[in-house]
């Protein structure tokens, strides 16, 4: 039956688009996680008295895109450093207490990588700050990677969208072709175009929404049970849970279903109505 064919084609196209969407969402989420690990370490000048630390912290915190600011004492920094060195850390024992050559510092986390450089420069320009250490190079790589993934994701969705529109409009046209006889009889009997059109459009809408529902179920199953388990087994990165993504997926599927089903059949029937 034609309905089955239309639904299958529509479901297949939606599944591909949905997968592209989920892939892009996961890459973005992964990027965001990495972004959060990017820190600026601002070393405080020794001449600054400890009473002023609180107001300095507040000033940095007030800057745009600062997600978090953490104060690290020089003693703590030394301990961290020792821990990093492991067994060789014993060499650092000589520098403990008054001999500690390190500085007190603020560790700043940035919420938006695009502002990373700006924040880094602003903090670095403050009188109380001796110097900053940042990871601008890594940030730049991340930024361009994120842009590439986003642009690529959008293009994949556009191209697949156009391809599926083409396939589906052909499927509908075949369905219409099979019913051209019925349409022409209706015209002979004196049915207006509008009268003939609306059941077809309604049917198209029904097919579209049915496909959206079927595809949503399939996508959910594949994502959660197939991909989810695969990723869990790989123990590499965890997927964004489906519960966070389903409003977007549902909106895309219903949107495609309504546009392709409703407008698709309305447009395809025109040829047979004009004849």
């Amino acid at each position: 039956m034609m309905t089955t064919a239309s639904v299958s084609v529509l479901v297949a196209c939606m599944l591909i688009i949905g997968t592209a969407f989920l892939f892009a969402q996961n890459v973005s989420a992964f990027m965001a996680k990495i972004e959060q690990q990017n820190e600026i370490v601002a070393f405080i000048d020794e001449k600054v008295p400890e009473e002023e630390y609180q107001s300095l912290k507040a000033r940095i915190e007030a800057l745009d895109s600062v997600a978090e600011i953490r104060f690290v004492t020089k003693d703590q920094a030394l301990l961290d450093y020792r821990a990093q060195l492991g067994e060789d850390g014993a060499y650092l024992d000589a520098f403990s207490g008054e001999e500690n050559p390190l500085r007190n510092s603020f560790v700043i986390t940035i919420s938006d990588l695009d502002n990373f450089k700006k924040v880094s420069e602003t903090v670095s320009g403050m009188e109380e700050i001796d110097h900053v250490r940042d990871t601008q190079d890594i940030v730049n790589v991340l930024l361009s990677l994120r842009n590439v993934v986003q642009i690529l994701g959008i293009w994949i969705m556009i191209i697949l969208g156009v391809v599926s529109l083409f396939i589906i409009s052909n499927t509908i046209k075949i369905a219409m072709h099979n019913r051209r006889h019925e349409i022409s009889i209706m015209k002979y009997i004196g049915a207006t175009n509008r009268f003939i059109r609306w059941p077809f459009v309604l049917e198209g809408l029904f097919i579209g929404i049915l496909s959206a529902a079927v595809c949503f179920g399939l996508q959910w199953y594949i994502y959660t049970y197939v991909m989810g388990r695969l990723f869990a087994a790989l123990n590499f990165v965890s997927l964004v849970p489906f519960s966070q993504l389903y409003p977007g997926i549902a909106a895309i599927f219903v949107g495609i279903g309504v546009i392709v089903g409703g407008f698709g059949s309305a447009a395809s029937i025109r040829k047979y109505l004009d004849a």
Partner: peptide
């Protein structure tokens, strides 16, 4: 053109091939 359906409603045509809708 959009008046054609109204013209056709004033007549009943029995076609040679009947043209009944099979569904």
């Amino acid at each position: 053109k959009r008046k054609i359906p109204f013209l056709r409603r004033t007549m009943g045509v029995v076609f040679q091939d009947f043209r009944l809708i099979e569904t």
